[in-house]
Design a protein around this nucleic acid. Structure first.
Lengths: 353, 353
DNA sequence: GGTTCCGCTGAGAGCGCTCTCGCGTCTATG
DNA sequence: CATAGACGCGAGAGCGCTCTCAGCGGAACC
């Protein structure tokens, strides 16, 4: 099957119009008579013509692609496959992109290669970029070069962002543990270089301060095995532990396993709260009480802001993180009222990382 | 900060060479003196120049991007976020792409829009496309237009493919259930339009035939809720059920939940085997015995074949699916020898879908 | 010294598209 | 009836790059 490459020239010739008119029809631009428009449309349909994206991008300066930029901590690119988080981000972006015939490009780099990768992406003119876990400094530089960027999560002040209330949510989670009676609460955090992990850590510290708890915290690397190892260590160091807050569900799942393996019970001996409300949360036994991060919605909002060009430098959209009470915090937790929220939950946290 | 767009012209001028020479240096083409080469390289580094991808693609006809093409069943694009499968595919592709400065484009469409999307992707010349769950007919058409495509999973005969032994693995899973004593075994399958689901269904049917089982099968849509609903129905219809094979771990997790909610025990009353060995498998209680699909490795292999241009029409690479025995099949299963495998496990299955 | 060959370089013609600009036609206006 | 404006259309100049081809100087050979 010889499938000769069609160009707009072919279409124009076949339809008996100029290249310019054909282009106008293809782009739904005004200033074409209905007659010619249908004629061109038919030829396009008959021949199955598709404009060449590269040529279009070059000529127009616009791009048909939106970039997702993810920086992996410590070169841990494999986290991308292990964490449900990222596929949920992609799902959200794709949902917002559906029907726009804008394509999604996925760029993942380790922190070491991050500046290089960001420069490359910034240079290629795109519909925009959704930045995931890009440090504030790099995000700022990126945004300075290519104005079309939105950060998923807290970042530099003048970079537009979609932010979950990480800090607030972590505070709420620990507050819940406290209210069901836990007094010796530990936190298993994500890696330092992860911006979300930092926000959750801040919330933990605030809870420690306000509730008069000891600051017991370890890093679980956002992985199940890390959560298992962290909980094992915590259990050994603090035999009186009665509550664990994990900064993601995968780590919480590992922690539950470690607790069980150590011969303790969840939630009777130790209550556990996870974070994300990912697919695993409901699969764990007992099912995890967790903080529902609206990842898909946030990613979709960031994408839409980019497509609509609505993302001015200080544009910001905050997403509440709701508590999903399941069994890992015991039967009592469900009966408790949700923690009291201020009307503008975020203002209280302004200035926090 | 005024960040004027650099072109190769700027580089050439600044380095005192022609555009052609600058281009040669940028592409590591031979025929440039070491002197000029270093001069150009330094200017590029100093100015932080990045060639424009669109212009490069247009001029060379090559593309710096590799496409991942996913067709979602029944318009169920949200499965992308709910199934760990897809992020593992992406992780595998990204791993193979690391260091090649080829970018990944993700294209997801519902079955209804599939022909349209495939045409668009086929038209834009790319480094190649990894086809996930594209029907054999569409894959064949796609491959006819753009020779650079590899299917992940069984497909049309002359489309290159990386195939897991789905059928064999499903057979092995059910055979395990049979060997630990299950006699009333049901299967929870994926949606018909999913090619992997079809392979697993074929293996189930073979097991039914060879082991003399009843053909009890329902569709669980590759989702946890679907698995829960399916198991609930199965339990009601077949009170004597003692084994369940689920075509993915998410459905298996749902099934375990349903069994527990129905007051039966896993594995004591009903043994369960999942598929994929995804992140949830280990989180479920009891942890799932499952078939480990080397998704990342397969995706990486497909990607490498594309990059190296090794994917001739009949190119094929088969991946064995190993059994991971955990507790959902009881303590006895671990003691059983793995099922006997023929030396070339796939040849026996040749001609199967 | 003349010829050949070879390695390095630059000029220039596109790649397929968009978009400005100007021309011609057609309708409202004074 | 002349003029202005609006509208539809085509010509043509790029977008930033690659790649062929011709030229040029120097080494090798007769």
């Amino acid at each position: 099957m010889t499938y000769r490459k069609l160009t707009i020239e072919d279409i124009a010739r076949k339809a008996g119009v100029s290249r310019a008119t054909a282009s106008r029809v293809l782009n739904n631009a005004p200033g074409v008579s209905a007659d010619l428009r249908t004629r061109v449309d038919r030829v396009v349909a008959d021949l199955g013509y598709r404009p060449n994206a590269a040529a279009r991008a070059l000529a127009s300066g616009r791009r048909d692609a939106l970039d997702l930029v993810v920086i992996a901590c410590h070169g841990d690119i494999s986290l991308f496959g292990a964490q449900p988080y990222y596929s949920r981000v992609i799902a959200g972006v794709l949902a917002a992109l559906a029907g726009t015939d804008t394509q999604l490009r996925v760029n993942v780099a380790e922190s070491a290669d991050a500046p290089d990768m960001l420069d490359r992406v910034a240079q290629s003119v795109t519909a925009g970029a959704v930045l995931v876990n890009v440090s504030p400094a790099l995000a700022a530089r990126f945004h300075a070069r290519c104005r079309r960027a939105v950060s998923l999560g807290a970042t530099a002040p003048h970079v537009p962002a979609v932010e979950p209330e990480n800090s607030r949510a972590a505070y709420d989670a620990i507050s819940l543990l406290h209210r069901i009676g836990c007094r010796r609460i530990a936190a298993i955090h994500g890696p330092d270089c992860n911006t979300c992990a930092a926000g959750r850590r801040a919330g933990h510290l605030e809870a420690v301060r306000e509730l008069g708890l000891a600051d017991i915290a370890v890093d679980g690397g956002f992985r199940r095995e890390g959560g298992y190892a962290a909980a094992t260590r915590l259990l050994a160091a603090h035999p009186d532990l009665d509550g664990i807050f994990a900064a993601c569900d995968m780590m919480a799942a590992g922690a539950v396993q470690a607790i069980t393996d150590a011969g303790r019970r969840v939630p009777d001996d130790i209550a556990v709260v996870g974070f994300d409300d990912s697919a695993v949360a409901a699969c764990v036994s007992p099912p995890l009480t967790t903080m529902r991060l609206p990842i898909e919605e946030m990613a979709a909002a960031a994408t839409r802001a980019l497509l609509e060009g609505a993302a001015a430098p200080h544009w910001r959209r905050f997403f509440p993180v709701d508590m999903v009470v399941r069994n890992s915090t015991g039967p009592g937790a469900a009966l408790l009222l949700p923690p009291v929220r201020s009307p503008h939950p975020v203002s209280a946290l302004a200035g926090r990382p």
